[in-house]
Design a protein around this nucleic acid. Structure first.
Length: 497
RNA sequence: GUGGCUAUGGUGUAGCGGCAGCACAGAGGCCUGUGGAGCCUUUAGUAUGGGUUCAACUCCCAUUAGCCACCCCA
């Protein structure tokens, strides 16, 4: 082949002779010719961006397949919304004062003067689609699932990218607490099937009414202790008091322990709703943990909120039992029992404080986006983090279907025969080939690497005889088969036909 | 966004102010129509830009990126 004859041109080999010549003062010879590209000048990935390489394909496939399987089982219909939306959608939906909108959103003005944002999350867009396409007129609830890229200008870290992927499940038009429970059970099933042990961190943040009352109580409590708060929390006191519960400063932690709890300030309806959710979860025997400090950074949430935390990989997977809320425990006690909720320890490369997924109820969002009041709930999974977790606990992705038959050929006539044979078997068998290779040896090497069970060898001689050799790669035995019968013969060996 | 740590072939790693080594992977061969083992050969690197020095991969500064903690969240 031509390839073999061609000397490989390596920059070094070109440069050396030039360097050896006596330096001529006047003009550098031929230096105007294209110079080798310097590695340092090669284009780089944008910060926080990541190529998803073939080595990881099986993980992505597995996770995606699991999402699709669960979506089907629970009756979700797939939906895809654009990656770009009007910036305003997220400002209104997610909340102006949230970090996501305030400092993490990719936003720009396009050629037409439109203010555009790369979607930082999907719930607002889903609701926009629901409202905009009149899905109120469909049988309720409308259950939608999605899988796609999202963008946040955060500082990259393991499991945290500026472009990342989420799979999400949203249920619109149903306020029944069983919806919340089913969502959580779906999330649970996902991780269980993938072999990742997690805990469900559960809380309720009430509704507009009782949360307002609670917020005032909280502010009242913290006001007297303002001096002991960290800088951030002083800011939070006026801007988003609920987030005070999120703080991990030791000084704030102690204050937090005695702060009033949302659970004790729920109005009747919210109380009913929440405890119904808890009841369902108990029936399902799901390992949730009451965590009064889950408040979530997006404005649209109300009532049930939850996050999925990975359990530490090595050691220390205990804690759980003690903090699961027994169904018959009173609210106050329950909270007391878990006031020292611990995040999983750092393990491997997974950062200490990450959630693999999270969500909750957002009954007010549709109305906020100009639709009819529509109760809704949903959650999203961080795919990169899920895959990281899988790798950490060596939860193997599904093996790709092993190659059953490899077709090797020798010579141009055989190559043409092989090409035809490959297509004849394609729909019934997992076949592979390396048609561009010439020698038999390299082809068998590849067949071996692919783990092919059989290799069909077609050479000059076989072409003339109208036969082919079928080689059993495990036994090392081979037999000559008439060419037209090869496909059928192999199918029979695999029990097809 | 704040603070810190790190940066050597494709991957994983040594090393030292004075010739950059090893393993794996890749390519070719021993074996011209028969894979897995072995052996041989070979490809390929000090992130970028400055500074100190006779000499920098090594020391200093900046940049970039990754990671860690915070922030936030998926």
């Amino acid at each position: 082949m031509i390839r073999k004859k061609m000397p490989v041109l390596k920059p070094k080999k070109i440069m050396k002779p030039v360097a050896l010549e006596k330096p001529k003062a006047a003009k550098p010879p031929e230096l105007t010719l294209p110079k080798p590209i310097r590695i340092g000048a090669a284009p780089q990935l944008l910060r926080g961006m990541k190529d998803i390489l073939p080595v990881d394909a099986s993980y992505w496939k597995t996770v995606r397949a699991k999402c699709e399987e669960l979506a089907e089982f629970f009756g979700y219909m797939p939906i895809e919304t654009p990656i770009m939306e009007p910036r305003d959608l997220f400002v209104r939906g997610v909340g102006k004062q949230t970090d996501i909108v305030e400092k993490e959103m990719y936003a720009f003005t396009d050629q037409g003067g439109e203010t555009i944002a790369l979607r930082p999350e999907n719930t607002a867009a889903i609701v926009r689609a629901y409202v905009g396409h009149g899905m109120v007129n469909m049988p309720q609830p409308v259950k939608l699932s999605y899988f796609g890229p999202f963008f946040r200008h955060d500082r990259p870290q393991a499991g945290r990218y500026r472009q990342f992927h989420q799979a999400g499940f949203e249920v619109l038009g149903d306020d029944h607490p069983v919806v919340d429970a089913e969502l959580i059970s779906l999330a649970w099933a996902f991780f269980k099937d993938l072999g990742i042990s997690v805990t469900i961190q559960l809380n309720t943040i009430g509704c507009v009414n009782c949360r307002g009352v609670y917020r005032n109580k909280l502010v009242e409590y913290y006001k007297t202790k303002r001096g002991a708060l960290c800088v951030n929390c002083r800011e939070r006191l006026t801007r988003s008091p609920l987030r005070l519960l999120d703080c991990k400063e030791p000084s704030c932690e102690t204050l937090k322990a005695n702060a009033p709890q949302m659970l004790n300030h729920l109005d009747e309806a919210c109380h009913q709703h929440f405890f119904k959710v808890v009841e369902y979860l108990d029936d399902l025997n799901l390992p949730y943990v009451m965590n009064p400090y889950i408040v979530r950074g997006l404005d649209y949430y109300n009532r049930t909120v939850f996050e999925i935390w990975p359990e530490a990989v090595a050691g220390g997977a205990a804690k759980l039992e003690e903090s699961v809320v027994p169904s018959d425990v009173e609210a106050g006690e329950a909270v007391a029992a878990v006031s020292s909720v611990e995040k999983p320890e750092v393990a491997g490369s997974m950062p200490a404080q990450v959630s693999l997924g999270g969500g909750g109820r957002y009954d007010g969002l549709a109305e906020l986006l100009g639709g009819r009041p529509t109760p809704a709930a949903g959650f999203a999974l961080g795919i990169e983090r899920v895959i990281l977790a899988m790798k950490e606990r060596s939860a193997a992705p599904a093996e790709p279907r092993p190659t059953q038959v490899f077709v090797a050929q020798l010579g141009e006539a055989a190559r043409r025969k092989a090409l035809v044979l490959l297509h004849a078997m394609r729909s019934d068998l997992k076949v592979a080939s390396a048609l561009s290779k010439d020698g038999l040896k390299p082809q068998l090497e590849i067949a071996n690497r692919l783990g092919a069970r059989y290799t069909v060898i077609v050479g000059q001689k076989e072409v003339i005889d109208g036969t082919a050799i079928v080689r059993d790669m495990e036994a090392g035995m081979q037999e000559v088969v008439p060419f037209e019968k090869v496909a059928v013969d192999l199918k029979r060996r695999f029990g097809i036909v």
